[in-house]
Each structure stands twice: as C-alpha cells, then as structure tokens.
C-alpha cells in the first residue's frame, strides 16, 4: 500500500483507500464472527458441552443468525437517557477500534500504513474507546451502567500505563516503534523472538492486555453477577452489536500486537521453515494468542475492583519498570537487540 501514500490524494486513490478499508472490514467481521463461534465452542468443550451446533453445519452460522437477530431488533432508547450521547457511544467505541487496525503488518509487504510510531498510534486510539464506554454508562441513565462505566474508566486508564511501559523494552531493543521494524528485528530462530529476553515485559503485556480488553479475569465493567451487564445494560439491537464488535476487534488487534511485538510476527520459528509463507505463521501465532484468551476465560474467576487497581499499580507497573532496567542493562553489557 505504500505507493498509494506517496501519491497525491485523487478521487481514484480515495476509492482505493475505501476499497482497502472495506476489505479489512470484511476480514475483521469474518474474524469476529468466527472468534465468537470458536469462543463459544472452546468454552463449551471445556465445560462438557458441545457449544453452538444448531444453525448451519456444526453451528457455523450461529453468529450470523445472532447478528441478524440483533439487527432486526427494535431499537430502544430509554426514555430518560441522554439521547445524543446514547446514540453516539456505540459508534465512538467501534470507530477507534477499527482505525487502530490500520497499522498492523501481517507480512513483510502486507500492511495498510507503515507508521513510525505504530504502537503509540494504537495506544492513543484505543484510549478513545474508554470515553465511549464511560459515555455509554453515563448516557444510559442506569445505575448499573454507570457503575460499569466508572469501573471501566478506572480500569482501562490504569492498565494502559503498564501496557505501554511493558512495550518500552521491546522498543529499546529494536530502537523503533515501527511495528514492521520490530518484527524484522526478531528474525532468525525462535529464541530471537522478544518473548524470551523480554519475558517480564511479555507477561505484563499479556495481563494488561487482558485487562484492556475487559476480558476475564478483568471483565469487571460488565461483570454480570454484580452489575447485570455493566455499561451496556440498556443497549440492545444493533447498538449492542457495535459494542460487541468493538470488543472483538480489540481482541483481534491485541492478538496481532502480541504476535508482532513478542512472538516474532510472520517469522517462522526456525529459518529452515521459511518455505511456509509468513502469513501462515502469523495466523498460527495469532490464533494461539486468541485461544489463550478464551482458555483463561473458561478457567478464571473475576478479580475485585480494589484488587484490580492494586495489581496494576503495585505489581504490574513496578515489574514493567524493572523490565526497562533489565533491558537497558542487557543492551549495555550483553549487547542485546540491534
């Protein structure tokens, strides 16, 4: 796509951009459809159940049917809700999640935008979704939604700090925030991937990422046993679908980022296996991360709010800081990284 960026914006180029975006949207929606399907299948299998198996062969069309149902539902807005904000929130949640995908490189030349501060761009955009969730919680005029929204604000802001700092080590080793260069720096055998020298950073990143995604064990904003459905208690139909979509698009983004930052992106684990295209390796690693997220969801209970904050500020943040020092020492004395 790089040649497009270098040309002046014409109608033709704008059409190309739109077409590209629509392609990514198609891929993402396909992913979300089947991520939900596999999440339900895997969690079902882990609980002696079969998971969805009624709609289509093996239940493959279950999510399609669910989405169709959501789209056909009556669009309800609570009488005393703040109408403008209530309508705006789902869009505000989804747009940044989708825009954040622009910077993800799936292969050497398979990337939308090669941004020099790729990771920062992602963090900046994902922060916007927090606002959307607070807005949704506030605008619903529902106490559970409000509590969920406030929790989510506290949680996502707290965890963004260790999330960013845990990646500093990677950035230091690569000397760049450009995602493509980060992957290129991890070429070679699998022990060259960042997850080994950056093991602390990797763990901190994974935990904070789970919290960023609002997924178990950090699913407090929508903790159904306490807050009914959290910030989207009052949402139904396609507005609810947008929140759901945003959530899974972030799952997609975080799984991609984990692959890129720590698992070597499209690099094969052994250079001898390079005959298999890089995109296959990328997808395999990506799916492993997604599976891990589902697996954790099937196993763990939920943290409490105060413990959640404590974990972020008292455990993850110092660990991430420590990681920076270790990385600095590694670069200085052992010649890690480039």
């Amino acid at each position: 796509m790089q040649w497009l960026w270098d040309q002046p914006l014409s109608w033709m180029n704008a059409a190309w951009f739109t077409l590209g975006a629509l392609c990514v949207l198609g891929i993402v929606i396909f992913f979300v459809t089947y991520a939900i399907y596999f999440e339900r299948k895997i969690i079902g299998w882990m609980q002696f159940r079969k998971g969805p198996n009624r709609v289509g062969p093996f239940g493959l069309l279950q999510t399609v049917a669910d989405v169709a149902k959501l789209l056909l539902k009556e669009d309800t807005i609570p009488a005393k809700a703040d109408k403008a904000l209530f309508i705006m929130a789902p869009a505000l949640a989804f747009i940044p999640s989708f825009a954040a995908l622009a910077i993800i490189p799936y292969g050497m030349n398979l990337q939308f935008a090669d941004v020099n501060v790729g990771f920062l761009y992602y963090v900046a955009l994902s922060g916007v979704t927090t606002i959307a969730i607070v807005t949704a919680g506030w605008a619903s005029n529902n106490k559970y939604a409000l509590l969920g929204g406030m929790r989510s604000a506290a949680q996502m802001i707290s965890y963004e700090v260790p999330l960013v700092i845990s990646v500093v080590g990677v950035a230091m080793m690569t000397g760049s925030l450009n995602l493509r260069e980060i992957v290129l720096a991890q070429e070679g055998y699998f022990w060259n991937w960042n997850f080994l020298p950056q093991i602390i950073g990797f763990v901190v990143f994974l935990v904070s990422a789970l919290a960023e995604l609002n997924r178990t064990p950090f699913d407090l904003p929508e903790a159904e046993s306490e807050l009914v459905a959290g910030y989207h208690t009052e949402y139904s139909g396609f507005r609810f679908a947008f929140f759901m979509l945003a959530e899974y698009v972030y799952l997609y983004a975080i799984a991609c980022l984990t692959t890129i930052l720590f698992l070597g992106g499209w690099n094969p684990p052994l250079p001898q296996l390079a005959f298999i295209p890089g995109i296959v390796w990328f997808i395999l690693k990506f799916l492993a991360v997604v599976f891990f997220v589902f697996w954790v969801r099937a196993t763990f209970p939920r943290l409490r709010v105060d413990q959640l904050m404590g974990l972020a500020w008292k455990a993850l943040l110092p660990l991430a800081m420590l990681n920076i020092f270790i990385t600095a020492a590694g670069i200085h004395w052992f010649g890690w990284g480039g």
């Binding site: 064990p217 046993s225 763990f300």
Partner: peptide, 16 residues
C-alpha cells in the same frame, strides 16, 4: 457461587 465470583466452568462441572 463460583459463577457469582465470575468463573464460568465450575457451574457446568458441578451440574454435570
């Protein structure tokens, strides 16, 4: 109880 605490699987383990 574990469902209240947020773990999904124990519920189905127990009911099984």
């Amino acid at each position: 109880y574990l469902l209240d605490i947020g773990a999904l699987s124990p519920f189905l383990f127990a009911f099984n």
